[in-house]
C-alpha cells in the first residue's frame, strides 16, 4: 500500500518530457517533488503563472507570489505571469497537456465529483470544472476508499458532479486504473503488497482484470 508520497511518486512517472502540467491541491501538489531527472516540465498555476518554482527560502516570502493553493512560492528561469482570463484561456484551448487533481468520487464512466457535499461543505469549485472540461489528459490522485471505509470508485457518482466523462486514469494507495471509454475501471498495476482481491474489495464500480497484474515500480 502506498502513502500520499507514494501516490505522487507513481503519478510523476506519467509526466512526459516537455509538457505543461497543472497540479491540484493536496496529493497532486506533491507530484512536483518526484518528477524524474531529465524530465523537463512547466507547472501551471491557474492564478496566473507558468513555471512554478520551489517554496521560498525562509525570509524571502513574497505576498505577491503565490500558487493556486495560496502558498508562497518562487519563479524559475523562463517563468511568466498573466491574468486569470488568459490562464483559463490556455486551459480551455487545450494548451495544458496534463491535469492532476484530487477527487471525492470517480465513477466507471469517468465522471468526477470533487467540489461539494450538499449541506456540509460548500467551498466552491474554484478552477476544477474548467480544468476537467478542457484538459487533454486528466489523472486523479486519491484514496481508494473514504474515511468511512466506502469505495470512492463507483458505478455512478452520488455527489454533485464536477465534470462528466473526463477522468482517464486514477492512482490510489492500492492501484493504478484506467477508465475505459466504454466504461469500467481497468486494473493496470497493483501497489506493493496489495493483491487483486484487495483491490476488488475496495472497488464498488465495474473492475476489469485481464491477465497478470504487475506490481508498481516506484
Amino acid at each position: 500500500m502506498l502513502d500520499k508520497n507514494g501516490i505522487a511518486k507513481r503519478i510523476a512517472r506519467e509526466v512526459k518530457d516537455g509538457s505543461y502540467v497543472n497540479l491540484g491541491i493536496g496529493i497532486p501538489t506533491l507530484v512536483a517533488n518526484y518528477i524524474p531527472d531529465g524530465i523537463r516540465v512547466v507547472l501551471q498555476s491557474e492564478n496566473g503563472l507558468l513555471g512554478i518554482g520551489p517554496f521560498p527560502l525562509e525570509g524571502e516570502e513574497d505576498a505577491d507570489l503565490i500558487n493556486a493553493g495560496k502558498q508562497t512560492i518562487t519563479t524559475l528561469p523562463g517563468s511568466t505571469f498573466f491574468d486569470s482570463a488568459m490562464s483559463f484561456g490556455m486551459i480551455r484551448a487545450g494548451k495544458v497537456d496534463l491535469t492532476i487533481l484530487g477527487a471525492m468520487e470517480v465513477d466507471e464512466n469517468g465522471d468526477i465529483a470533487n467540489w461539494k457535499i450538499p449541506g456540509k461543505m460548500v467551498k466552491g469549485m474554484g478552477g476544477a470544472m474548467d480544468l476537467v472540461a478542457s484538459a487533454r489528459n486528466i489523472i486523479v490522485a486519491m484514496q481508494h476508499v473514504n474515511k468511512a471505509g466506502e469505495s470512492k470508485l463507483l458505478p455512478k457518482c452520488s455527489l454533485p458532479l464536477t465534470g462528466k466523462r473526463c477522468v482517464k486514469k486514477i492512482v490510489t494507495e492500492l492501484a493504478v486504473l484506467d477508465v475505459l471509454p466504454e466504461g469500467g475501471f481497468k486494473l493496470i498495476e497493483r501497489a506493493p503488497g496489495v493483491s487483486v482481491e484487495d483491490i476488488k474489495k475496495a472497488t464498488a464500480g465495474k473492475l476489469i482484470v485481464e491477465g497478470e497484474i504487475p506490481e508498481m515500480i516506484l
Binding site: E46, S84, A85, M125, G126, G127, D130
Partner: peptide, 23 residues
C-alpha cells in the same frame, strides 16, 4: 467556475454580451 468568472469579466471588458464555455 473560476475560468467562467474570469471570462465573463473579460467579455464585459471586450464588449461581448456572452461567452460559450464547456466548464
Amino acid at each position: 467556475p473560476q475560468g467562467t468568472l474570469a471570462t465573463r469579466l473579460l467579455a464585459a471588458g471586450y464588449g461581448m454580451p456572452a461567452i460559450f464555455t464547456p466548464a
